[in-house]
Amino acid sequence: QVALSRTQVCGILREELFQGDAFHQSDTHIFIIMGASGDLAKKKIYPTIWWLFRDGLLPENTFIVGYARSRLTVADIRKQSEPFFKATPEEKLKLEDFFARNSYVAGQYDDAASYQRLNSHMNALHLGSQANRLFYLALPPTVYEAVTKNIHESCMSQIGWNRIIVEKPFGRDLQSSDRLSNHISSLFREDQIYRIDHYLGKEMVQNLMVLRFANRIFGPIWNRDNIACVILTFKEPFGTEGRGGYFDEFGIIRDVMQNHLLQMLCLVAMEKPASTNSDDVRDEKVKVLKCISEVQANNVVLGQYVGNPDGEGEATKGYLDDPTVPRGSTTATFAAVVLYVENERWDGVPFILRCGKALNERKAEVRLQFHDVAGDIFHQQCKRNELVIRVQPNEAVYTKMMTKKPGMFFNPEESELDLTYGNRYKNVKLPDAYERLILDVFCGSQMHFVRSDELREAWRIFTPLLHQIELEKPKPIPYIYGSRGPTEADELMKRVGFQYEGTYKWVNPHKL
């Protein structure tokens, strides 16, 4: 086992960053958080920038500027975001240094004079007029057009580079997404736009490419001749908990499936790229999406959770019991969808996408189930092999396979070949997804960000279904809070070829 401390991990990262040409360590950078008073800024962006600063992973002359409508001070920003920093008493001095680099400007999102004030403020910072500028839009999409237009007109660096990070949702359907994309691309070049999907920053999602293309053993079996089906799962054990009003506007397909799960599907299904260059990788992902037809209604199961009468606390409440959810809402909190990649490698292999709230566990994984062994000599005792990439929690890679049961006879039983990170790298604290992705933006690497043509294809696949749901308002199937979801989803999976045995229990190697 390799035991690495946080300091050692960050030392390795620093070495990698400083050796590259793309990370300008000594240049002045300004990180501007648009929507600095909001939840995302408070819980994710400010803490992430602090962790990067604490670990010495930001360029040395980096300033952080918050911008929002609320009249706040840096002290206010500190008060609301610091509880999420997880700072230790030993880091007190470092924390003071961090907040000394912070400033805040209040202004409207659609007022040109406010942006001119913001620009004057940035120019007044040390070497601010020639600094590289990175704008993070932690804002609702309704203000994107006004904000990007004003940034472009008043706040661009004339000497350094300018980059803009856009948070999902990128529209509600193909038409609104196209409108937003066309607007942003009329102001910024594609190499300046970073559409963030934080799932692409997760260690195991990034590991998929290495697993596939750096190991000879997987190449020959990664196709329709050997793989019976692919299941991509995202499960949350909690409901909307008072935030249903926002969720109800989008629903589970827009929230998770059309982005996170579809991105994971691309990494499983794509061909080997010409290189690890950002556009070479994204070219292959677009090719996969172009091979997927629009979702067919007979390959869809929609569910909505109801309270568990035997549960406790939140578990007793259904989705419609959330006071922020519109009365009688038919918005799905669970969806199972089957897609097919219609190309030579994957023809006929079902890709089953499942996601839901208020389920029995927290889990995100990719599961490849292989065909049955031909010419069975073990009297149907063999179960199908599976390769599982567990994204969260407890990152893991393992192969479910058959071995001989101890004893006199040739009785096979299920076991696993474990390729888990935790076994080799004991207690290594890896940077989280937002840390990686923000560092990628500083480096100018777009590999783990969504390109406009990729986004367009993703919406093309799901828009007809979303429009049909909005028009017909089908009643989702009720499922109990804390269950596996509607049984109809299991029946759909069985119908397209997935075999669920229920006889195997994964042993978490992190707890051995």
Rank of each mutant, 00 (worst) to 15 (best):
R254A: 08
R254G: 02
R254V: 00
M257P: 06
L261N: 00
L262F: 10
Q263L: 02
Q263N: 04
L265W: 00
C266S: 13
C266G: 08
L267H: 06
A269S: 11
M270Q: 06
M270G: 08
K272F: 06
P273C: 04
P273F: 00
A274D: 11
T276W: 02
N277L: 13
D279N: 14
D279T: 08
D279C: 09
R282N: 02
R282Q: 00
D283A: 04
E284T: 07
E284W: 04
K287C: 08
V288K: 03
L289C: 10
L289F: 07
K290N: 13
K290W: 05
C291Q: 13
I292F: 07
S293C: 09
S293I: 05
S293V: 06
S293K: 15
E294N: 12
V295K: 08
Q296D: 14
A297F: 14
V300K: 09
V301S: 10
V301A: 12
L302S: 08
G303E: 04
G303L: 02
Q304T: 08
Q304K: 04
Y305M: 03
Y305R: 02
V306R: 15
V306E: 14
N308F: 10
N308R: 14
P309Y: 11
P309H: 12
P309I: 12
E312Y: 12
G313I: 11
E314F: 11
E314M: 09
A315E: 14
T316S: 13
G318A: 14
G318R: 06
Y319R: 01
Y319S: 00
L320M: 11
D321N: 10
D321S: 11
D322V: 05
P323T: 15
T324E: 07
T324R: 08
V325S: 07
P326K: 05
R327N: 14
R327F: 12
R327T: 15
R327I: 15
R327S: 13
G328M: 12
S329I: 00
T330Y: 10
T330W: 09
T331I: 06
A332K: 00
T333N: 01
F334I: 00
F334D: 04
A335S: 12
A335Y: 03
A335E: 00
A336Y: 01
A336M: 12
V337N: 12
V337P: 01
V338L: 10
V338W: 06
V338T: 15
V338Q: 10
L339I: 09
L339R: 00
Y340R: 11
V341T: 04
V341E: 00
E342F: 11
N343E: 05
N343V: 05
N343M: 06
E344F: 08
E344R: 08
R345Q: 10
D347L: 09
V349T: 07
V349M: 06
V349Q: 04
I352H: 03
I352Q: 00
R354H: 06
R354Q: 03
R354F: 02
C355F: 00
G356M: 02
A358Q: 03
A358L: 04
N360W: 00
N360R: 05
N360L: 04
N360T: 06
E361R: 05
R362Y: 07
K363W: 00
A364D: 04
V366A: 07
L368V: 14
F370K: 03
H371Y: 07
D372N: 11
V373I: 08
A374Q: 13
G375W: 08
D376F: 07
I377G: 07
H379D: 13
H379Y: 13
Q380G: 14
Q381K: 10
C382I: 13
N385G: 07
N385V: 01
I389H: 04
R390S: 12
Q392N: 13
P393E: 07
P393Q: 07
N394T: 08
E395W: 03
E395V: 05
A396Q: 00
V397I: 14
Y398C: 00
T399K: 00
K400P: 02
M401N: 02
M401D: 03
M402L: 12
T403S: 14
K404D: 04
K405H: 10
G407M: 06
G407R: 04
M408W: 05
F410C: 15
N411H: 11
N411K: 08
P412Y: 09
P412D: 03
E413A: 11
E413M: 10
E413P: 02
E414M: 14
E414G: 09
E414P: 10
E416S: 09
L417D: 04
D418I: 01
D418T: 01
L419N: 06
T420S: 15
Y421C: 04
Y421A: 00
Y421N: 01
Y421G: 00
N423C: 09
R424V: 05
N427M: 11
N427G: 13
V428G: 15
V428K: 15
L430R: 13
P431G: 11
P431K: 06
A433K: 00
A433D: 02
A433G: 05
Y434D: 01
E435F: 03
R436E: 01
L437C: 09
L439W: 11
L439V: 14
D440W: 06
F442L: 07
G444T: 06
M447W: 03
H448R: 09
H448T: 05
F449N: 01
V450T: 09
V450S: 06
R451A: 04
R451S: 01
W459I: 00
R460C: 07
T463D: 14
P464N: 12
P464D: 10
H467Y: 11
Q468V: 14
Q468E: 14
I469H: 10
I469R: 04
E470N: 13
E472Q: 15
K473R: 15
K475G: 11
P476G: 05
I477H: 13
I477Q: 14
I477F: 12
P478W: 08
P478S: 13
P478K: 13
P478V: 08
Y479N: 01
Y481H: 10
G482P: 03
S483W: 06
S483A: 11
G485K: 01
G485Y: 02
G485N: 02
G485T: 00
P486A: 03
P486G: 04
P486T: 00
T487C: 12
A489Q: 12
A489T: 08
D490K: 07
E491Q: 10
M493P: 06
M493G: 14
K494P: 04
K494H: 13
R495L: 10
R495K: 14
G497S: 11
G497L: 02
F498Q: 07
F498N: 12
Q499R: 12
Q499E: 15
E501C: 11
E501D: 15
G502R: 08
T503N: 15
T503K: 14
Y504H: 06
Y504I: 04
K505Q: 14
K505L: 12
K505R: 09
W506T: 04
